[in-house]
């Protein structure tokens, strides 16, 4: 156990195996059937989609919330978060970051992020470029920027359709069984 109150890596593996055996995870289709609602609340889902789409336009429609949620349900998520060595389990990191966005949005605009117009969202998300943001209670802003931008890039540009869209040969040795 690394952080009190959160499942250890071994416990997470057990939960994943149990979920698979119980039919909670059914792979083999185009994308994992696990939906964002099973990991995030509706508000978190909306906030994640809004932040990601502000950072990388088109990533929400590409399914960034389902992507992050599906990865967080795996014992070893294929997210760029695994590269950053931040001392917090990934799910906790995301939930804290998303809650902090809404807090910031309330402080700046009086409403949650997902209730703002796209141009207003940009004003909130741009704050990530600043190392010290008044009222920000989440993980370091630079880290949040990197992680959420990377997720949005993965969802939109890390899949084969993006290469087709940009007219670049994908040239797979072995195509992945599904986009993520």
């Amino acid at each position: 156990m690394i952080v009190d109150g959160l499942p250890s890596r071994r416990a997470a593996i057990r939960l994943s195996i149990a979920g698979t055996l119980a039919g909670g995870l059914t792979f083999g289709c185009d994308k994992p059937s696990l939906q964002a609602g099973q990991v995030f609340t509706a508000d978190e889902r909306e906030t994640l989609g809004a932040v990601a789409d502000t950072l990388v336009p088109g990533s929400a429609a590409a399914g960034v919330t389902d992507f992050v949620a599906a990865m967080l349900a795996e014992p070893d998520p294929r997210l760029c978060y695994r590269f950053v060595s931040f001392p917090m389990p990934p799910k906790a990191f995301y939930k804290l970051a998303l809650a902090s966005f809404d807090d910031l949005s309330h402080a700046m605009m009086g409403r949650p992020l997902n209730a703002l117009a796209p141009s207003q969202r940009l004003g909130v998300v741009e704050k990530l470029a600043q190392p010290n943001v008044n009222g920000w209670k989440g993980p370091p802003t630079a880290l949040v920027y990197f992680v959420l931008r990377s997720d949005a890039i993965d969802a939109l540009y890390g899949v084969q359709e993006a290469y087709t869209r940009l007219d670049i040969p994908y040239m797979a040795h072995i195509e992945p069984p599904r986009p993520w």
Binding site: D76, R78, L79, R82, F83, D154, G158, V159, Y170, M171, A172, H173, I174, E175, P176, P177, P179, W180
Partner: peptide, 16 residues
């Protein structure tokens, strides 16, 4: 045959 040509799937090979 499980080394998929994907920047996302490639992360399976990285430290876990």
């Amino acid at each position: 045959d499980q080394m998929y040509s994907s920047t996302i799937w490639s992360r399976d090979l990285k430290w876990a």
